[in-house]
């Protein structure tokens, strides 16, 4: 569904990603693991077209999205839940969701589905996004991305700074999306928070591909994780 093919990218002249290749199937959760600065967030920005690629390509469902201008990329069905949530502050919850709905012309039914996943947001529709609690903001960031009926979903540290009950809520939504056939690329520092839901794990080191293995292998032998991400 979502495929990165030998992607080189970076900020200005500082190259971060070096020949990175990844493949996420529909209905699969791929967890991208790596140390700070390994290039996880950069990978997501490169997929969204927010960083120009030096070479390589990003393909979504047969479309080479890396050839498109950045604002066209989400219109092909990539929902992005960025690190730090990055809601449109000053806009209400309803307006943030409206922007998500407009990306692919989703209707009211999609909004209702999304709000059924996050009933808390329904009560806060007219509240300004920045006045929500941390957990609610994460719900809104997730809901905003789901509003565009994504084929692929990128989640960058969705559990950062959240209490356990919120982490559980987010995790359940991710699992539901997988069941609906969405390709999910998940970046997470806290391995234990996501290992239980991931199907496969891809390691990334200094912007290069590391091993890719079934999550099952890591659940049984935790030492592999320590070798890649341990201090």
């Amino acid at each position: 569904m979502l495929e990165l093919d030998a992607v080189n990218a970076g900020y200005g002249r500082a190259q971060v990603l070096r020949d990175l290749s990844l493949k996420v199937e529909a209905g699969e959760i791929l967890c991208l693991l790596g140390r700070n600065g390994a290039g996880k967030t950069t990978t997501m920005q490169a997929i969204m077209g927010l960083l120009p690629l030096m070479s390589g390509r990003v393909v979504l469902d047969g479309t080479e999205v890396s050839r498109l201008p950045p604002h066209e990329v989400p219109r092909h069905g990539i929902g992005y839940i960025p690190q730090g949530r990055r809601l449109f502050s000053g806009l209400t919850v309803a307006q943030n969701l409206e922007i998500g709905l407009r990306v692919r012309g989703s209707g009211k039914d999609v909004l209702e589905e999304v709000l059924d996943l996050f009933p808390r947001l329904r009560e806060r529709m007219d509240q300004k996004a920045q006045t929500l609690s941390g957990g609610e903001q994460q719900m809104l960031a997730t809901a905003r991305a789901l509003c565009l009926r994504p084929k692929a979903l990128l989640l960058d540290e969705p559990t950062e700074g959240l209490q356990p009950s919120m982490i559980e809520a987010i995790r359940q939504v991710i699992v539901k999306m997988r069941a609906a056939g969405v390709a999910i690329l998940l970046v997470e520092q806290r391995v234990d928070a996501v290992l239980s839901v991931a199907d496969r794990v891809a390691f990334i080191e200094n912007g290069r591909n590391g091993d890719v293995m079934p999550a099952e292998a890591l659940r049984q032998d935790h030492s592999i994780v320590d070798r890649y991400v341990g201090v």
Partner: peptide
Amino acid sequence: GLLMRATQADRDMALAFGIPVE
């Protein structure tokens, strides 16, 4: 106006949600 305010709040996220920022 909504698109302008969203662009004002966060240019990159505006792009990531299909707003033609240019």
